[in-house]
């Protein structure tokens, strides 16, 4: 009874929060402040060149993540194979460090890709001025170099993983590397992948809706921008279609 009451109370509080949020949102859009927000929200992320701060932030993140990856590679390269054969715990500290290394190298690669692609997009846009050409070129070359370095670091991290888990090795550059890797997993590891994939599916659902709301707000306060909303919608449909296609396989005759 107490547990049900608590759940009802929680649902009531959520409902009140949604009502409050919706009320604030509606007021902001309808009010004078909302109508003139683009002049009020003067956020100019630059010191000398336009957008130099975001690019500098990306560079800083990559330096930190690359440093962490190099530190991890150096620390783990001399760990004996196998990782502590008589380990009884799930995930001794070397295994845990290896999993963190793979995650950090993946994030490093993503940030590097964002930097490079944003620099290319900025150079190709009509927003950039001719005087900014040196700045843009530096960002394109540095971003490309960051992608190459992060790819190499990620490859080395995967090589280290393959050294310790040779029966479940991942072919980093292979066309079907991910599928071949998955096929090598045992049932418990596959169960962990399924559970992780479902958690990622739920997180992406929330992220896509949140992203679309962000771009609606962007259109309200700045300029009408339908393309990001449409692109996120298409990604959402692809995600749902993939999920239901996989789930429907069980009903098909072999």
């Amino acid at each position: 009874m107490a547990k049900n009451m608590s759940k009802t109370m929680k649902n009531t509080l959520y409902m009140l929060a949604y009502l409050l949020g919706g009320g604030i949102f509606g007021f902001l859009i309808a009010s004078d402040w909302g109508q003139n927000a683009s002049s009020s929200l003067r956020f100019d992320p630059s010191i000398y060149y336009k957008y130099d701060l975001p690019f500098a932030l990306a560079a800083l993140i990559i330096i930190v993540l690359s440093g962490l990856t190099l530190f991890g590679l150096n620390r783990l390269k001399n760990v004996p194979v196998p990782l502590d054969d008589w380990a009884e715990e799930l995930g001794n500290k070397e295994e845990y460090a290896l999993s963190k290394l793979l995650m950090v190298s993946a994030f490093n690669h993503i940030v590097a890709m964002i930097w490079m692609l944003t620099a290319i997009a900025y150079s190709a846009s009509s927003v950039s001025a001719p005087s900014e050409v040196p700045f843009i070129l530096v960002n394109i070359f540095a971003g490309t170099a960051a992608v190459l370095v992060s790819t190499f670091l990620q490859f080395r991290s995967v090589q280290l993983y393959n050294k310790h888990f040779s029966e479940r090795s991942l072919d980093y550059f292979g066309k079907n590397g991910q599928k071949e890797f998955f096929d090598k997993l045992d049932e418990a590891e596959k169960f962990t992948v399924y559970r992780s994939a479902f958690t990622a599916y739920k997180a992406v659902n929330i992220a896509l809706v949140s992203g679309m709301i962000v771009f609606v707000l962007y259109s309200v306060f700045f300029t009408f921008s339908p393309l990001p909303i449409v692109v996120l919608g298409i990604i959402w449909m692809i995600q749902q279609a993939s999920y239901y296609y996989e789930a429907s396989k069980v009903y098909r005759n072999k």
């Binding site: 196998p82 054969d85 380990a87 009884e88 799930l90 997993l185 045992d186 418990a188």
Partner: peptide, 27 residues
């Protein structure tokens, strides 16, 4: 060891650890 048992049944050491901990029911 967990590794020895895992090798004999074609699973990973981590799977044996999960089974022993009660976090996974084997097929």
């Amino acid at each position: 060891s967990q590794g020895d048992l895992a090798a004999q049944i074609g699973a990973s050491r981590q799977t044996i650890a999960l089974i022993e901990r009660g976090d996974y029911s084997p097929s």
